[in-house]
Design a protein around this nucleic acid. Structure first.
Length: 494
RNA sequence: GGCGGCAUACCCAAGUGGUAAGGGAGCGGUCUGCAAAACCGUAAUUCAGCGGUUCGAAUCCGCUUGCCGCCUCCA
């Protein structure tokens, strides 16, 4: 069985069959660039990054588009507040977004279109909608008339009547139906403006994604992703506009990721429990944030807390710890190759675990991107590998013994790379961890290293009382020492 | 009011009809000068409760309880 994905449209898992065999056209709603991104954006970006990576790993040729909404009320407001213009604001936060994504190891999509560079496409769709009678001009605005589109509500599972009955639908005298949404807004003084058949103005939010999606991926494309909160109205409206205009189905599979809560509360600016990606990366390794996100299924809500990120941190360190051990202990014999029979004779259990791993990993990922299960399998392989290393005590591995260990390590790295994890050399990772956390201890790296040096001299002189005293002092400052034949390592514990 | 989701060991979490993965914490052991890390062992006769379908259910159906999200800009 191949890839199964949960499709919001059918509310069930479906076999993924791309429109064109071997190719996937994939669109994800990007961000509105008016402020720094928060960890909710990070989750969405990481989740769909893994979808992208896994599709490519599975052999698909993927065209991945993620837009920037760079014209919007919030951007205008911010520009006015700062006495500058919208492009300045947009460019600043696009740069910040890229900085965050790069730090998180989120791959750049194949295309990152800007709304403001696709106004013509939007106008053409709106023209077609007016022509076909799905849209009407009212004053200086143009609206989509939801009652003209019978399938309205099919994604979010709502009935028009139910929605109107809800108390929170805004009343607007310009609209024929309160649920009609704006396609084109007549401009007010001081706002960015484009010429159009309906006078100067700017596009509504929903039409942007319809236009960029169809322009770069065609009238019908395979996958569209975004946060759960976009299901209604944004994605519902995209479907209505696009399908009304083209007369073709818009998207085959809709994927939506769950929210991030903070200490079991919804993250929001009004609650003040808002964490930007930049803030979190001040104290948490980017791969640990990734690990945290991927340790739970992408559609479920996830709770960000000190405990949950500490767990993620420890899990990652365990994985990297084994990679480091392999690297240190298997230096010799790196270039030698041995037949499987020879490798298997070193340790049948490890050899078989390595051989069985790819299918297990794929099975997990094929099941609607079950990264949590995939991670579980990764730990299984890690344990086999570490157990194998431990069999040799402190001895260095050579020849086929080393080759088997290296084979295990490269299996771990190959598949964790599909998750965007374990992408660094282990010693680089641990050095980054120390650098990140040393600030919370009140010491500097140099001070710690000097104390370790003093302690090791004491140990050499067999003055264990002094050595243990230094270690205890460091421990009190949350610095943990590990003695090994390769020397003394240290880390900051949470 | 409408729509949808969730409830699995101390905590996090996978499991979607065949007899409970994994991680963290704890406890015991191995290793170690002692530690730490790692490894080994240990933890749910049971999956919110009740009823039903089935040879068989955490998994399907119904009801009950509790929690959460969306319906307004939102990842």
């Amino acid at each position: 069985m191949g890839l199964q994905v949960y499709n919001t449209l059918s509310k069930s898992k479906e076999e993924f069959v791309p429109l064109v065999p071997g190719k996937v056209r994939f669109y994800v709603c990007g961000v509105t660039v008016y402020d720094h991104c928060h960890i909710g954006h990070a989750r969405s970006a990481i989740v769909f990054d893994v979808v992208y990576r896994y599709l490519r790993y599975s052999g698909y040729e993927v065209t991945y588009v993620r837009n920037f909404t760079d014209v919007d009320d919030k951007i205008i407001r911010r520009a006015n507040a700062e006495g500058t213009d919208c492009p300045t604001i947009a460019q600043r936060y696009i740069a910040a977004f890229h900085e965050d994504m790069d730090a998180l190891g989120v791959l750049r999509p194949d295309l990152e279109p800007l709304a403001t560079e696709n106004i013509d496409s939007m106008i053409r769709i709106i023209e077609k909608l007016v022509e076909k009678g799905f849209a009407y001009q009212s004053g200086t605005d143009v609206y989509f008339e939801v009652e003209k589109f019978p399938r309205y509500g099919k994604l979010s599972g709502r009935q028009l009547d139910d929605m109107i009955a809800g108390a929170r639908v805004e009343v607007d005298v310009n609209k024929r139906n309160p649920l009609d949404f704006v396609l084109w807004k007549g401009s007010k003084p001081g706002e960015p403006t484009w010429e159009s058949p309906w006078g100067p103005g700017r596009p509504g939010w929903h039409i942007e994604c319809s236009a960029m999606g169809s322009r770069f991926l065609g009238n019908t494309f395979d996958m569209h992703g975004g946060g759960k909160d976009l299901i209604f109205p944004h994605h519902e409206n995209e479907i209505a506009q696009s399908e009304a205009a083209s007369g073709e189905p818009f998207v085959r599979y809709w994927l939506h990721n769950g929210f991030v809560n903070i200490d079991n509360e919804k993250m929001s600016k009004s609650l003040g429990n808002f964490l930007t990606i930049g803030e979190v990366l001040q104290r948490l390794h980017p791969e640990a944030l990734r690990f945290f996100v991927l340790s739970k299924h992408y559609r479920s809500p996830i709770d960000f807390s000190d405990d949950s990120i500490t767990e993620a941190d420890k899990g990652l360190e365990r994985l990297y710890g084994t990679l480091e051990a392999v690297k240190e202990r298997s230096a010799a014999g790196r270039d030698e190759t041995f037949p499987d029979k020879v490798l298997r004779s070193q340790d049948g259990e490890l050899f078989d675990a390595i051989a069985a791993f790819p299918d297990a990993f794929r099975e997990a990922m094929d099941n609607d991107f079950n990264t949590a299960q995939a991670l579980g399998f990764l730990f299984g392989l890690q344990r086999h590998l570490q157990r194998y290393l431990d069999r040799f005590g402190q001895k260095k591995l050579k020849g086929p013994a080393a080759a088997l260990a290296l084979k295990g390590a490269s299996a771990i790295r190959e598949y964790s790379a599909v998750l965007g994890l374990l992408t660094r050399e282990p010693e680089v990772f641990f050095a980054e961890q120390r650098k990140l956390k040393i600030g919370t201890t009140g010491l500097t790296e140099a001070e710690v290293e000097r104390l370790i040096e003093v302690r090791n001299q004491a140990r050499q002189a067999r003055d264990f009382q002094e050595a243990d005293r230094i270690r205890k002092d460091l421990e009190a400052k949350r610095i943990q020492l590990e003695d090994s034949p390769a020397g003394t390592r240290w880390r900051v514990v949470s």
